[in-house]
Every structure is written in C-alpha cells, then in structure tokens.
C-alpha cells in the first residue's frame, strides 16, 4: 500500500462515501412529485403523495361544517362542503405546486407541495 493511506483508511473512506451516497441518491432522484397536504387549524393533518394515488378516492374531514376531499392521480379538490358559499368547491382541482384551496369556516387549507421549483413563487389575488 502507499504511504498516504493504509488499507483501513481506504476502507473507512469507502464506507463514508457509500453511506453519504446512500443518503443523497434517493434525495436527488426521489423527486417524489406532488403531494397534497391538508392543514387544519394551522397543523398538518395529512399528506398524500399524488403519484401513489392509483384510483380516485374521497375522504370526509372531521370538521364543522363538514367537508369532503377528493384525491386523484393528478390533483386534489374539495368535492363537497356543507357551508353556504362553497368557495372551496368552486376553487376546483389543485394540480400544480403552490395551488391552494381553503374552507375557511372549517379551518381547513389544502396545498399542493412538491420539491421542484415553481414559477411563480406566489400568486397575488
């Protein structure tokens, strides 16, 4: 072996490199696509990876007024709400990173999040 490194050193370096790679590679290539994140009263209550949604399904939220979310392969929406204006249902399906819909009386906000860069950063309305 050479003077700079002993066998054991090389072994250690290899282990470190492998461990780091094992951590980094999934992070780099896992662009897990879009996630539908549900917040209630400011706290995250569920996170659904949209690419893993094989068949569309609905989830009734434990909220007052009652509201139902519909998860699809390419997006998420409020499919039903028992409030008066139904603004959350009218918002339609959220399909892009950063899209937001809210049922204000129920205190529920759904947001599409993802790892990629989105353009624009934010929308003024």
């Amino acid at each position: 072996m050479n003077k700079l490194l002993k066998k054991a050193d090389i072994f250690l370096i290899l282990i470190i490199s492998l461990a780091c790679s094992a951590f980094l590679i999934p992070r780099l290539f896992s662009d897990s696509g879009l996630q539908a994140v549900v917040y209630k009263n400011g706290a995250e209550i569920s996170r659904v990876n949209l690419s893993e949604v094989k068949e569309s399904y609905e989830t009734k939220l434990d909220s007052t007024p009652a509201a139902t979310l519909r998860f699809e392969k390419d997006g998420v929406c409020f499919s039903h709400a028992e409030c008066k204006d139904k603004l959350c249902v009218l918002t339609g399906k959220l399909t892009h990173k950063g899209d937001v819909a809210a049922c204000l009386p129920a205190g529920v906000v759904i947001v599409v999040e993802g790892s990629g860069k989105s353009l624009p950063d934010v929308i003024t309305y």
């Binding site: 009218l90 959220l94 937001v100 819909a101 624009p120 950063d121 934010v122 929308i123 003024t124 309305y125």
Partner: peptide, 26 residues
C-alpha cells in the same frame, strides 16, 4: 401571503403571479 396580499422579504428576485380574473383561483 395574507389572503393574496404579499410580503416579499430577503435577497434575490421573486416571481409574483397575478391571478387571472377570468380563471380559477389558482
């Protein structure tokens, strides 16, 4: 973003979309 009124703070550029008045909310 507080109901669409926005604070942009820090260095660099920010891209702010203006809602399409004829389109969906997003």
């Amino acid at each position: 973003s507080v109901g669409g009124s926005i604070l942009l703070y820090g260095k660099g550029d920010f891209n702010v979309g203006i809602r399409d008045p004829s389109g969906d909310a997003n």
